[in-house]
């Protein structure tokens, strides 16, 4: 973590976390208070990363996955139970398109490879996907994956949840001006000290380092999903990392979708579901009553309330 004073009353900390670039910016308080708040937020982020990482074998998620098919249910804490409830709700509302058990598709999809997987490879994995088959007992907070090889992960919203938690920690520390940005998923603490909003750019989906639109936000959250984060391109066809759990193939239709919502968790989940819904994405976002911005396959930008 390398905090740097950006202007006398603004403090910016940048560090790598959850495989992305994290930025915390706070303003309107003296450097000591800001520093203490940023450190508390940073340790909260590391806590969430350690707890929900699927790469760390001792993480809770790894323990749940390791027990898949064994018939043994894993008891989870209240925080994890809340996240599983959210996943269940999202699964239902997206008609199965948002599924935290779809991570098994990574076994077939290697975005560093020269070719997409063969259809047989994907067909083999599809039976392992299905949140509706997961045995989640809310009242006893016990979860069991019914089949060996099944797995769940919180990659679909862990980063957004972490951004919201870090912001809550900063606000609790008395910091009311600034934001947390985890790799483009942004949660605000509040506007600048003089009440003016912060301004954010939306990443250009085809030109790294360029932006396509700017917007001003003083509160709430902003998240963007795009087909440019991880992908492979073969014969002019782009295969992005947002995979449809029903077909096993990537979402098409949108280069990127950005959503503004009070919580980063909601904004991030909505962008992913909208990407997966393809043509039906904008109608879904309208029903969810959130401002959004889309860039379609031809690179055409459309803003609705954002």
């Amino acid at each position: 973590m390398s905090p740097a004073a950006g202007g006398a009353e603004e403090l910016v900390a940048r560090f790598g976390l959850m495989a992305c670039q994290a930025e915390i910016r706070v303003a309107g308080v003296d450097a000591d208070a800001a520093q203490a708040g940023i450190e508390a937020a940073h340790s909260e982020l590391r806590r969430i990363e350690a707890k929900y990482s699927r790469y760390q074998s001792d993480s809770l998620v790894s323990r749940i996955n390791a027990a898949a098919g064994s018939g043994v249910a894993v008891t989870v804490d209240e925080e994890t139970a809340g996240l599983l409830d959210f996943a269940a709700s999202l699964h239902q509302q997206s008609e199965g398109l948002f599924d935290i058990s779809s991570g098994v598709l990574r076994r077939a999809w290697n975005f560093r490879a020269a070719q997409p997987p063969r259809p047989e490879q994907i067909a083999e994995l599809l039976p392992l996907i299905g949140w509706s088959r997961v045995d989640w007992n809310r009242s006893q907070r016990r979860i069991a994956l019914p089949q060996a090889g099944m797995e769940i992960d919180f990659g679909g919203f862990g980063k957004e949840y972490a951004a919201d938690r870090a912001a809550a920690v900063l606000v609790a520390a008395g910091l009311h001006h600034g934001y947390v940005n985890l790799g483009g998923d942004i949660r605000l603490l509040g506007p600048r000290p003089d009440g003016r909003p912060w301004s954010f750019g939306i990443q250009h989906p085809r030109q790294a380092g360029a932006t396509v639109a700017g917007l001003a936000l003083g509160s709430g959250a902003l998240a963007t999903s795009g087909d440019y984060e991880r992908y492979l391109e073969v014969d002019g066809r782009r295969y992005c990392h947002i995979l449809n759990p029903r077909t096993g193939w990537p979402a098409r239709c949108w280069q990127s979708v950005s959503v503004q919502a009070p919580l980063c968790l909601a904004a991030g989940a909505l962008t992913t579901v909208a990407m997966l819904m393809e043509e039906a994405g904008p109608a879904f976002l309208r029903r969810q009553n959130v401002p959004f911005l889309t860039i379609n396959e031809r690179g055409e930008l459309r803003r609705e309330g954002l």
């Binding site: 959210f86 009070p262 919580l263 579901v273």
Partner: peptide
């Protein structure tokens, strides 16, 4: 009515809103 169901599901989680 005006709040989307996804937002409400997210708001059910404790500790996200100050």
């Amino acid at each position: 009515e005006p709040r989307g169901s996804v937002l409400l599901a997210a708001l059910a989680l404790p500790g996200l809103l100050p």
